[in-house]
């Protein structure tokens, strides 16, 4: 994605909001969203001159979002297996953030591949 600052801002603010919403629900998710937010914020630090610095922070924070959703889905799956249907209360914030994370991850990956191809095309010209 071209505007990486906006993506990093979306991830960090959204995860902060979801962190606050989870405070009374589950401490693990509070920690997860806090970590995602910190990871995204670190992406703004300009000290690093590596070209993929911002992309790396976008991809890792979205991966953390995906893993958090996987954690939630695994819990749901096990409740289904152990027939504890009454215990199934999906955490909607985690699932929403997980889906957004998948989209961001794929988009960023495709973007990186695209700029690589463009660079090669320019080089061959």
């Amino acid at each position: 994605m071209k505007n990486k600052n906006i993506i990093l801002l979306i991830i960090s603010i959204l995860s902060l909001i979801f962190m606050i919403l989870n405070i009374s629900i589950n401490f693990f998710y509070v920690f997860a969203f806090l970590l995602i937010s910190i990871t995204a914020f670190y992406g703004f630090s300009g000290e690093n001159e590596v070209w993929y610095h911002k992309s790396a922070h976008i991809m890792v924070s979205s991966l953390l979002g995906i893993f958090t959703m996987a954690y939630e889905l695994l819990g749901i799956l096990f409740s289904l297996i152990s027939s504890e249907l009454s215990n199934i209360k999906p955490n909607i914030y985690v699932i929403i953030f997980g889906i957004i994370s998948i989209v961001i991850f794929i988009e960023e990956l495709n973007y990186l591949k695209k700029i690589e191809q463009e660079a090669k095309r320019k080089k061959s010209l």
Binding site: F28, F31, A32, L35, I38, T39, Y42, V50, Y52, H53, S55, A56, H57, M59, V60, L63, L64, F67, Y71, L112
Partner: peptide, 22 residues
């Protein structure tokens, strides 16, 4: 790209704690 963050001296440790917590 992943190692850039996963082996970061601050974030990397926090991510490790998160992984163990999970």
């Amino acid at each position: 790209i992943l190692d850039h963050v996963l082996t970061h001296k601050v974030l990397g440790i926090l991510i490790y704690i998160f992984a163990m917590f999970a």
